[in-house]
Simulated assay, not measured.
Amino acid sequence: MSELQKGIEYMQNHQFEEAAQAFNDYIEQNPNDPVGFINFANLLVHLQEYDSAERFYQKALELEEQLPAAHYGLGNMYYEKEQYEQATKHFQDAMKQGLDDQDIYFMLGMSLLNQEMPKLSLPYMQRASELSKEDVDIQFQYGLTLAYANMIDEAFEQMNVVLALDEGHSDAYYNKGVCLLYQERPEDALDQFEKAIKIQPDHLLAGNGKKQVEQLLQERDS
């Protein structure tokens, strides 16, 4: 087993000190291989040592310009730092250089969504959902993106997709309730809020939604 493989295994087992030593040894033995620098940088991001991580990613890119994994790593680092514009740039660079899987589409979509650009985010989130049909989080975030893009009917149906995967997803019930309010169906919305609260009694948004709808119905019927 190479030092690189050892480092990855140590990292997976949360033995971070040992992982750092293994990656360092690999880099000393293979100073012109960018993969060692990328893996060490990934570890540093996990440890929130962002400045050092950035230096390692940049060193990898100095060794090899076309390196989508380095751009993806930089994108993740900036995303964690909530610097979404920079994250978007690096995710786009990774995609231009050939990275094509659900993670890159999802992270690019989330970066755009966090910049309040749901319509730009939408095609990436849709593609991520197509590639990860069983991933509850991706399916849910795609539903939220549809809602933020004012595609209320589609968002409602997407929340049903989420609930088919996880019938105990309280946030999906809450968001169905919000969609139903937009559709001017307060009684049905109330039912969804109550389902969310039954699953998660401390769901503040659902609790607040329930109170507001009950007040609305009371005023309407008085």
Rank of each mutant, 00 (worst) to 15 (best):
A149V: 03
P186W: 07
V178H: 11
A155N: 04
K133E: 14
P118V: 08
R127V: 02
D191G: 01
V161Y: 01
F140P: 03
A128F: 05
L144I: 06
L131G: 13
L180I: 01
A147T: 05
K133A: 09
R127A: 01
S129V: 04
Y148G: 00
G143T: 00
R185Y: 14
L120V: 00
M117E: 14
I138A: 13
K133I: 11
G168F: 01
D171K: 06
A128E: 05
C179M: 09
E116V: 13
P118M: 04
A189V: 05
Q115Y: 04
K133W: 02
L165F: 14
M151D: 13
A155I: 00
N160P: 10
A189T: 04
V178Y: 15
L180R: 05
Q141P: 00
G143F: 01
A164N: 13
S129T: 04
P186Y: 11
L181C: 04
H169P: 02
L165D: 11
L113W: 01
I138G: 12
L122G: 11
Y174P: 02
L165G: 15
A149Y: 12
A149S: 15
Q158F: 03
G168N: 06
A147Q: 14
L144W: 02
N160D: 14
G168R: 01
S121D: 04
L180V: 04
S111M: 07
E157N: 15
T145S: 09
L144F: 02
E130H: 02
E130M: 10
L122N: 09
P118W: 04
R185F: 05
N175M: 13
D137F: 03
Y124C: 02
Y173L: 10
V161H: 01
D191A: 10
L163I: 11
M117G: 06
Q115M: 14
L163V: 08
L146I: 06
F156V: 02
Q183C: 04
S111F: 10
P118F: 07
I138S: 13
Q115C: 06
S111K: 14
A128Q: 03
A147C: 09
L120I: 03
E167F: 02
D137L: 11
D137E: 07
T145A: 07
Y124H: 15
Y174A: 00
S129Y: 01
S129M: 01
L120C: 01
K176S: 08
N175R: 06
S111V: 12
E187M: 09
P118K: 07
L131H: 12
S132T: 06
L131I: 15
T145N: 12
S170Q: 03
L165T: 09
R127L: 00
L146R: 13
S132P: 03
V162G: 07
E116N: 12
E116T: 14
G143P: 00
E130K: 03
L163K: 08
M117F: 13
D191T: 10
Q126L: 08
D135S: 15
E187T: 10
F156I: 00
K176N: 06
I138V: 15
K176D: 02
K133C: 01
S132F: 08
Y174N: 07
L122T: 12
S129L: 01
E167H: 05
L181A: 07
D137H: 05
K119F: 07
Y174W: 03
Q115W: 06
Q158G: 06
P123V: 08
D153Q: 09
Q158V: 04
A147S: 13
